[in-house]
């Protein structure tokens, strides 16, 4: 049977992608960000996952205001890299895993989470920047990726609790899949940032560090935190952090198993407008 071996959490700042694509990684400003991922790149090579289930949000690229799905699972064989207005990022296309994705959709919907199934979709920086941070600049991504897009653009977005419970349902689905796949689940977005209005540029380091602490130690309590706390304390775009709870809800310890090992933790301010947070938890 398939199993979830680890979860990865990271910000997905678009400027990080631009820094990579434009060859700015040697600049001290960006070195301070990328050095936090040196360990992670080697770790991912060693772990050799068969599939990455990647939770992210679309930023008005695949989804306009015509259709706004709260939870959308990508079931296609492949996904093109979106042109967000600056031209598509020069990164490999994303290869999907339609059979596992369809299995997860079937299982999770029967568990009362009404997913939108997407058979054609471009993927934006929300998905490709985490891959770049974790894989560098390869000719092809190391394994198939199942994109899982969460609406965090138009309020109300799903609650932390809903995301956490969804993670549990995704875990159950993956564990009932009939191939022995090593699956990782990634939660992306955050940390504190605000991109709009006179309060743009807000950063809250203490809150971010506490979020990381609580994500590790008491995710269920953290999942009870209301939206307004994210908005007020971590900025209007800090709400992206609810997506980390999907990945966390899929881990062993919150489903009757042992606590995870914290393999890596990193935090840095700033990358452009945003606080960068990153965590790797391994199941035991």
């Amino acid at each position: 049977m398939a199993r979830i071996s680890a979860s990865v959490y990271t910000s997905h700042v678009p400027a990080v992608g631009a820094a990579l694509d434009l060859g700015k990684t040697g600049e001290p400003y960006w070195q301070a960000v990328f050095k936090g991922y040196d360990f992670s790149k080697q770790w991912l090579k060693d772990q050799k996952p068969d599939v990455i289930f990647l939770v992210y949000n679309d930023h008005a690229n695949a989804f306009s205001l015509d259709i706004i799905p709260t939870f959308a699972i990508g079931t296609a064989p492949e996904f093109a890299v979106a042109d967000e207005g600056w031209g598509p990022r020069p990164v490999p296309k994303v290869i999907g895993h339609p059979r596992l994705a369809a299995h997860i959709a079937q299982s999770v919907i029967q568990d009362d989470f009404d997913l939108t199934i997407v058979n054609k979709m471009d993927v934006d920086h929300g998905l490709t920047v985490p891959l770049s941070l974790m894989c560098g600049q390869p000719q092809a991504w190391p394994c198939p990726v199942i994109p899982f897009a969460v609406n965090v653009v138009q309020y109300p977005v799903p609650s932390g609790r809903r995301c956490y419970m969804l993670g549990k349902a995704i875990r159950k689905a993956i564990e009932s899949y009939d191939e022995p796949l090593n699956v990782q689940i990634w939660g992306t977005g955050g940390m504190s940032h605000q991109l709009q209005g006179p309060r743009a540029g807000l950063i809250n380091k203490e809150w971010d560090q506490a979020f990381l602490d609580r994500l590790i130690a008491e995710p269920e309590k953290l999942a009870a935190m209301p939206h307004i706390d994210y908005v007020r304390e971590a900025g209007s775009e800090g709400i992206e952090l609810v997506m980390w709870l999907i990945a966390r809800g899929a881990m062993n310890d919150v489903n009757g198993g042992k606590p995870p090992t914290v393999r890596h933790r990193f935090y840095h301010v700033p990358a452009s407008n945003t606080a960068v947070g990153h965590l790797i938890l391994e199941n035991n």
Partner: peptide, 9 residues
């Protein structure tokens, strides 16, 4: 401001 740690809470 961002390099200096961002807008304070």
């Amino acid at each position: 401001m961002m390099v200096g740690g961002g807008r304070p809470i």
